[in-house]
Structure formats: C-alpha cells, structure tokens
Amino acid sequence: MSLNFSRDALPLLLVAVGALCLPLLGNDYYLGVGFTLFGWVALAQSWTLVSGLAGYISLGHVVFAGIGGYLLVLTWGAVPIWLGAIVGAVGAGLFALLVGLPVMRVRGPYFVILTFGLAEFAKYVVINIESVLGKFSRLLLGGPALQDLYWVMAALALVGTFSVVVVRRLRLGAGLIAIREDETAAGTLGVPTMRFKLIAFALSALLPGLVGAMFVLRTGYFEPLQAFDPIISFTIVTMAIIGGSEDARGPVLGAIFLVLLSELLWSNFPQVYMVILGVLLIGFVLFAPNGVSGLLDRLASRSLQRPGVGLV
C-alpha cells in the first residue's frame, strides 16, 4: 500500500508537524489556537467519511459533538474524566447507528435537511432534560490542563486524518464512493449500500463525540445552546467545501484557512466573519465545487485526461 504524497501523506504530515511545532512557540495562546484547529480537523475529517465519500451531506454533525459533550457532563464525577469522554464517543456512535437505520434511507437534499432537523431536535430535547433537572448551565471544575487537552486533540486530528486515508483504500471506501456516484448502480454491482452507509455514519460520529467532550473540558462549562450550536455544523460543511472533501487533504486545508480567518475576525467582528463564510461557501459551490484540493489537482494535471478520485 503506497501513499500518494499529495493526497495522503501531505495532510498527515501537516497535522503531525503542526502538532509538534505549535507548543515550541511556548505560549498558551498558540496551544489554544492549535486545540481549536485540531478539533476542527477531526470534525471535518469525520464529516468527510460520510458526506465526502458517500455523498450524504450532513448539515447536523454538531449533534454528535453535542451528545459527546453532554454524556461527559452526565458522567462527570461518576467516572474518570477520560472514560467519560470515551463514553461520549461511544454514545455518539450508538446514536448514529440507531438513527441511521431510518435516516440513511432518506436520500439527497431530504437527507441534508433531515440531519439539520435532527440536530435541532436533539438540542431542544437536551434543553428540556436540563430544565427538568433544574440545570441551566453546568460548570465543570478541575478539568485537565490545556496542555493535556492539546495533545489529545492533536491525536484526534491525526486519527481522523488517518481514518480518511485508510477508509479510502478499503473496499468500504470504494463502496462509499460508488454510493455517492450512483447508489442504485452501486447496489446492482454488489455494494451492500445500507450496511456501508450505516458503518460510515457511525464511524463519522465517534470522533466528534470525543471532540465535543474536549470542547466542554476546555471551556469548563456546558450549555446546550452552545454545545449543539448549528454554526458548528455550518463551519464543518464550509471547511470541507472550501478545502475539498474528496480526500484527507481538503479538510486539513479548509480547517487551517477558516481557523486563521476566525482568529483574525471572530473576536472583534463575528458577524463579518460569518458573512465571509457565507460568501466563500457560495463562491466555492458555484465556481470550485471540489475545493482548494480540487484546484490543486487541476493545476497538477494539465492533460485532457482528468484524474478520477484516485481509488487504490
């Protein structure tokens, strides 16, 4: 199994080298930015598994992060912190498996709006549970230090990137791409479409569950409106569309770009930042549907025979 440098090795290297270098700057600010960046990389890579490869575009991926965060909060104090985070990931994965059975039968744009509705539904359910429990936002004191969280998040980003590289090379990846290109044809050629979609959906929920738990540990409090904020889903989609969601490279490029932009603008001009995101999203959908990654490919191959997706 040989790695294609630009598609596979480059994103892995970017994440690994980035993770090792940021702490050398010796400043908590950079650790914080790195933590956020790697969180987004992990989220966007997970999203790519189901939405990039299988073409089932999820506009509600925040739901898995929210569930991961909430399970961490619910198990807070009862089990060790890291175990709580793992419970969050497993919970998110099981949730995906459970709702995936009906939800993954819904195709195309209906799936897209359904995922959004599902995330909002989960948000309001959690809000109501919390208000029944009499909690309106929870403080979590005594969480791990930023440095520890940083390394965990960097590892998650690496795992996420690696998972896209690996899945693309498996039969699973080829099957998912076939489903994206034409689900009916894929089925007739022997691709077990429903099973593959479910596996992809569940896989794509695991890391976000952990990432959500890390976000909660970092801020030290949990508030459903924030943990299930649709802007998180929107940002994931925008990253993947700007970067490209054909391989592991796109999400890394997209995440770096948006995190830099957000560092520049978010704290002072949040609305300007969001407007720019909207404009970028529209621009890329219209003019460069394969993202920066696709533009790179186009530059690289000048011949008429355009490359396919490079299945191995």
Partner: peptide, 22 residues
C-alpha cells in the same frame, strides 16, 4: 445509463470487480 460519472473507466470497473459475485 448510470455510470459513476466522476470516476475513471478503470475505477468504475474496479469497483464492480471488488464487489460483484465473487
């Protein structure tokens, strides 16, 4: 016709090979 439009001819066939009847 329902080819996998975004894939090359070879990739189209490879997918059928790796699934298919076995």
């Amino acid at each position: 016709v329902r080819p996998f439009r975004g894939l090359t001819v070879q990739e189209n066939i490879r997918i059928a090979f790796s699934f298919g009847s076995g």
